[in-house]
Amino acid sequence: MTEENAGSVAKRFLYVNRRAPYGTLYALESLEVVLIGAAFEQDVSLAFLGDGVYQLTKGQDTKALEVKNFSPAFRALEDYDVTKLYVEKEALEARGLSESDLVVPVEVVDAERMAEIMEAQDVILSF
């Protein structure tokens, strides 16, 4: 479950995103935790389930809404060594989306694989 990492023990952190952006602030404030948390050199994964997949869709334009479009920030995650982004296959399909509709490369996984990923975590943060 844990591994030695430069003398300290790294934990597996999973951020579970199940909310769409903009209707509520949860998605943005969740991403803020991911960005801050990246500095702690833990083993970080992000899961996008249900409406959470809407956080990653291309073409978000929030100008008229007068709020910040935070979808480009997902592209910056790579610079923080956060590269494990898992998207629920069924959630994408149910919403008429495919991987090419998303702003970042992700690993699309079925429910069984997602359950395995969740089971392997030490800390699961959901907002």
Partner: peptide
């Protein structure tokens, strides 16, 4: 304090429980 305190709580605690 900052969000780092949440991550630190995740690292230092045996269990992290979310209420929301």
């Amino acid at each position: 304090s900052g969000l780092g305190q949440l991550i630190e709580a995740g690292i230092q605690s045996d269990r992290l429980v979310v209420f929301g």
